[in-house]
């Protein structure tokens, strides 16, 4: 969403400690401000963490760890890279990163949407869940490191592999280890040995495209990508083979 410069409140975060910065955000939002632009962000943690309004926050620079952790509503756009724990246990809202994100992107998210233009670190989307109307979405433009979708219990993860050549496989291993819910759509190819043993692999059906298409359209809108170019390559669907992966572990 484009912010109307006239109404956006600008904050220069240069040299400001995270606690002070977040205090300022809380204050602005209490006063009814709907658009906030933060400049010169340099590693401040927890931006957007305790916010539960519909505010738009544009971040220029590099926000620190746990960006939008526990967040419940705002839209956060990062013009730069995000670090570890982006969207940690998020409940609602949207994060758009015009760059890459670090480890555990979307850890335990229950709702909301995360769009990453480039790649992510290890354990992206680990233990994402879903509940009633809530279904978290994590779209990754490039690729994820190992253990993406580990313990995934719900939600939708999309790995686009836009940096991969035709036929080049995704680099991550142990994809979906312990997965017992949700779905991963992967554009391009991946070898069986890269998948967790709880993961099944299938071609997409019509109903999958109904889920995928609007999310890809939204991704393209955020990052100015050509929808057709993305959809031209084959997608695979990774799904949990068992809803009870550890059901037979115990002697009662």
């Amino acid at each position: 969403m484009k912010i109307d410069d006239m109404t956006a409140v600008k904050i220069d975060a240069c040299g400001i400690y995270y606690r002070e910065l977040n205090e300022k955000l809380r204050q602005l939002i209490t006063n009814g401000v709907e658009n906030i632009e933060i400049e010169n962000v340099c590693g401040q943690r927890y931006i957007g963490t305790d916010l539960d309004s519909r505010v738009n926050i544009e971040i220029h620079g590099t926000p620190g760890n746990d960006l939008a952790a526990f967040m419940n509503g705002p839209t956060v756009t990062v013009h730069g890279n995000a670090q570890d724990g982006c969207g940690n246990t998020m409940n609602e809202g949207k994060i758009v990163v015009h760059g890459h994100a670090g480890d555990i992107t979307g850890l335990s998210a229950r709702g909301g949407k995360i769009f990453i233009k480039e790649g992510v670190g290890y354990r992206a989307g680990i233990h994402m869940k879903e509940y009633e109307g809530k279904k978290p979405v994590l779209v990754i433009g490039n690729t994820a490191q190992d253990f993406a979708g580990e313990y995934m219990a719900g939600g939708i993860m999309i790995l686009l592999g836009l940096n991969l050549a035709e036929g080049e496989k995704h680099p991550g291993k142990f994809l979906g280890t312990g997965m017992h819910g949700g779905v991963i759509y992967l554009r391009g190819t991946v070898e069986d040995y890269q998948l967790g043993k709880e993961v099944g692999i299938a071609e997409l059906e019509q109903k999958d495209y109904q889920i995928l298409n609007p999310l890809i359209a939204e991704f393209c809108e955020h990052f100015d990508y050509d929808n057709e170019m993305i959809m031209n390559r084959n997608f695979l669907k990774l799904y949990p083979r068992y809803l009870r992966p550890y059901g037979r572990l115990y002697a009662y």
Binding site: D66, D84, H127, K129, H180, Y246, G247
Partner: peptide, 17 residues
Amino acid sequence: RMIPQGSDAISPAPHHD
């Protein structure tokens, strides 16, 4: 727990953050 009815609630050994 905010998870679907009938699904396993798995608490991993470590916090992954």
